[in-house]
């Protein structure tokens, strides 16, 4: 009888140990996606994909350049609208589009931009966040997820949700500071695939002011020769910086 019970126990899937702290959830996420060493081997990435606002019939090509330690540039090109560039060089943050012109970020919006630009956020989050507090579990898409509230060293707390079973980040909620006002942002994250030795999400659905914006990443390359001007602000932004 005892041997049968043992056999049944062995046949049951091992239940993941309940994580007790936010730090542990974040560490588990790093392990689940490839481990600290794998992240350390990535020095830059180029992501290419498509942004779609299906309800409005708007679609655009997206290219995102990112590099150590804290540089990022996202270029979205929409037919008839032109290029929309958003970037940070680790010190400044900007956006530029033909439609709205150049904008140098400041205050909390700049802080958010600089946090976004940190290349190794997953392993270096303590350099930008004061704390990561585990606030229990919530059901997300029918599956239990850890809710971790990340409090930046400067700025409003953000909530990240990690699937209990896989350890992968599946959801993010925050309130973004923008010149247009404070805007709640809700992001569903998925489509994890292995690129550059790390599991990276290829699918993100953002809900901003009631509008759904889907970002599908088709390709991710890492450790490539980036264009010399990948992180250079557009000329109109430079002109604003010079003022």
């Amino acid at each position: 009888m005892k041997s049968i019970v043992c056999a049944i126990i062995f046949l049951l899937p091992a239940a993941a140990a309940e994580l007790k702290t936010g730090d542990a959830v974040l560490d588990h996420f790093v392990e689940a996606t490839g481990g600290t060493a794998a992240y350390g081997k990535m020095h830059n990435t180029v992501m290419k994909g498509t942004m779609t606002m299906a309800a409005m019939g708007v679609k655009g090509a997206v290219t995102i350049y990112a590099a150590e330690p804290n540089k990022v540039s996202m270029v979205t090109e929409i037919a008839g609208v032109g290029k929309i560039v958003e970037g940070s060089d680790g010190t400044n943050g900007w956006t530029y589009s033909a439609m709205q012109g150049p904008q140098l970020k400041k205050g909390e919006e700049l802080n958010e931009s600089l946090r976004e630009a940190l290349f190794h956020k997953e392993t270096q989050w303590k350099s930008i966040y004061a704390s990561a507090e585990l606030q229990g579990t919530e059901d997300f898409d029918g599956k239990a997820a850890y809710k971790v509230v990340m409090t930046p060293k400067s700025g409003k707390p953000e909530s990240n949700y990690y699937d209990k079973e896989s350890g992968l980040m599946v959801h993010h909620k925050s309130i973004r500071s923008t010149p247009f006002g404070e805007i709640p942002v809700d992001v569903t994250i998925g489509g994890y695939r292995k690129d550059c030795g790390v599991l990276l999400p290829h699918s993100m659905t953002q809900t901003v002011a009631g509008q759904k914006i889907d970002l599908e990443i088709d390709s991710i390359q890492c450790n490539v020769d980036l264009p010399a001007d990948a992180f250079a602000p557009p000329a109109e932004v430079k002109a604003l910086m010079a003022k």
């Binding site: 709205q100 012109g101 010149p179 247009f180 006002g181 404070e182 805007i183 709640p184 002011a209 009631g210």
Partner: peptide, 10 residues
């Protein structure tokens, strides 16, 4: 319905 959006000039 849920929030105001400012039409800011850059």
């Amino acid at each position: 319905r849920t929030l105001p959006i400012r039409f800011v000039i850059f």
